[in-house]
Each structure stands twice: as C-alpha cells, then as structure tokens.
Design a binder for these strands. Structure first.
Lengths: 188, 188
DNA sequence: CTTATTTTTAGTATTAGGTACTAAATATAA
DNA sequence: TTATATTTAGTACCTAATACTAAAAATAAG
C-alpha cells in the first residue's frame, strides 16, 4: 500500500498542534483529509487539545492583531503624503493639533513626531512589509501644537533587505527632529 | 417621539462605511439595531457598498496581518530564552548555523544578530504589544557560523509607553553587538 | 482466542451568520 | 395620483461548526 500507515492518536495530536500553530486557517475538513481520518476524530482531537474551531481561531488572530497592525504597519501614514518617489525619497506634512500635545504645555508629544517620521520612512521603502525600525533619533526642538511639520525622507542605502532612511522634520523653517531608520523588509 | 428620525439612505450608508472601518467585527444584526432598520436593509447596503460579510471581514483582517505580526511581534523569540525577569532583564542564547551565514565567508548575517537582540528586548518588556524598535546599534565584531551568541538585555528606563532597553551580545567571551532599543508599547 | 477498553466513525439535530432570491409594503418624488 | 425608490418579510440554502447518541473497529489485557 502506498498510503502511509495511520498515525497513532498521540502522534496525530502532536502534529495537529504543530499544524494549527503554523496555519490556524485550516478547517476540520481539510485536517481530516490531511490525517486521513474522519471529521469526528478531528473534532474529538480539538476537544481534547482545547483547540477552538476555525472561526474562533481566525477571530482570535484578527482581534489580537487588529489594533497593533493598524497602529504600526497602518498603511495610512501619519501626516499627509505630498511627494513620493518609491525607493528614493518622500515628503509628508502633519498639521499638529491639541490632540497630539500635552494639555498643559501644548507641546506636541514626541512619539507623534516619531510616528510621522517612521511612517514616512516606511512609505518610501519599495517593499510591502518593511518594518521594525531601527534608528538613531534626536528631537532637536520642541514643537508647539498648531505647528505644521514637514518631514523629508531619503533612502541613503539599500543592502539586502535593509533599507537605510534618513528623515528630517522641520517646523517653521527650523529643524525639530532627525532620525536614521534601518527598515528591514521581511518578505521572501 | 424620543427616537431620532431615521437617517436617509445615503446618510446611513456613509455612517455604515465609517462604522465598519472602525469596527469590522459588527454583525448585520448589531448593525440593524444600531440603525434601527431591518436586517435586509443592512444586507442591501452591504451589497451596494461592496462590504463583505462579517466572517470575510474578520478573515481579511486576520490574513492581512497574520504573517506580518508573526514576524514582528512574533511571540516566538529568536534564540532560546534562558532567563527572564519581566520588565527588568533577560538572557537568550542563539546557536548560529550556516543557514544564518553567508555561504562563502560563513559570517553570520547581521540581521539575525539584530533579530535576536530585538526579540529579546521585546520579550523583557512587560507589555503585550510593545513594538516599533528605535535603536542605536553597533556590530562590533563579525560572528562566525557555529558561534553561540549570548544576548543580555536590560531595561534601563520606562517613561510613559516608552521602554528603553540595552542589549549586548557576546560570542566566545567577546562582545559582538550592542543595541539600544526604545520600544513603544501601544496599548491603552 | 476472547473479552475489555480505547479509539474511531456514522448519523442526527441544532446553531450563527450569513447568501440569494421573490414578493409585498411603505416612502418619496413627479 | 401615479411612478419610482426604498424598506421589509419570508423562504430555501450554505458553511463550519457544537452537542449528542450509538455503533464499528482497533488495540490491549486476560
């Protein structure tokens, strides 16, 4: 017989855990074909292993990552992209408001400035899943709520999957921020 | 009458788009209650607006982000975590192999070393969604395939949602890498 | 070899959250 | 008032399950 002899229960369940970890999008039906057992067996296994059903798994993945990815990868870049040469340079403008500032001092919180810089750096990279900024940053000047931030990014070097991007941000003609980003694209 | 007068079709559909963008996890039933219309109306709206059903939306969110988040947040850390004091420090060990190195020189590619450092930095942070490394890194010495990398991370400061972490990596008693990470946790 | 026990399979009813369709009721505009 | 647009009602069907009962098959124990 060319078919592999059936796995024992424990062997199957071990593989099951691995499989589902690798790919949580497998239906019971797909699994029962993979293991060459009935769908009921698969369901018993899930019950014993405490693995939730497909839809719950998908929902889990979605929920866990929804907010994260929206804020990190968040294709929507912080600020308005006004110029872009993919792989080379880009410019974005961010009109700051009180929402972005400390309520007392009206000074814009640093991480918003950083976000503008980082998201611009990501935008100029000619790679879909570029991420994980590594950078050397400096806040040169406080930014007041209402200031218009103009960020300029330039790709200075690309080596393998590493993209070196420099970003400078100005407000009222003075530089308020600089950052050197090394973005690593993760796609194959 | 205390109930708000029903919205017009176009008003409703505009709100619909907003709502679903904000929260793609809404069922038709929830939506029809929100708008105070029948479920059929909601379904007609989705049809006209090209909004897929709940499950497809969830699946979309999950699929789009699964690989990304896995590689970024990737709870699985690069290297083996051998010691961890959440929020304070941690140690991980990475046994390098030819897979991680340039085939000619057998020198380990920098980004693998970086990955070990970054993932350790993330692991020590006492926050679920810590991310977006900002860092100042230096590769001090080439690492040869086969070398055992020992990474030590230390949280040096936490301010608001920023976590400052220093990571040093040694191979054969000599330091090969240092990195300063500023991880920003994004949860509320 | 024959029980006993474990493991697997079969089958039915029920669920959520829909699609796809037909037809009727209600609003709004001409 | 009629024409058109919009909303509701209702039905059959779908997927990927749960929860359950019962029987068949495989494996272990005596």
């Amino acid at each position: 017989m060319k078919k592999k002899s059936k796995l024992s229960k424990s062997e199957r369940q071990n593989k099951f855990l691995e499989l589902i970890k690798e790919d949580p999008f497998l239906t019971d039906e797909a699994l029962c074909k993979l293991f060459n057992v009935s769908i009921q067996t698969i369901r018993l296994d899930r019950l014993e292993l405490g693995i939730p059903e497909l839809r719950e798994r998908i929902k889990g993945v979605a929920e866990k990552n929804y907010d994260k990815v929206r804020s990190i990868v968040g294709t929507e870049i912080v600020g308005e992209l006004v110029d872009l040469t993919l792989g080379k340079s880009g410019i974005s403008i961010l009109e700051t408001t009180n929402d972005l500032a400390f309520s007392k001092t009206k000074i814009v919180r640093g991480h918003h400035i950083f976000s503008q810089a980082e998201s611009l750096a990501m935008a100029v990279i000619d790679a879909d899943v570029a991420l994980t900024g590594v950078s050397n940053i400096k806040y040169l000047h406080p930014v007041n709520s209402g200031d218009k931030l103009i960020a300029k990014a330039e790709v200075v070097r690309v080596r393998e999957n590493k993209h070196f991007v420099h970003v400078k941000i100005n407000a009222n003609q003075i530089q308020v921020f600089r950052g050197k980003f090394i973005l690593v694209s993760l796609e194959k």
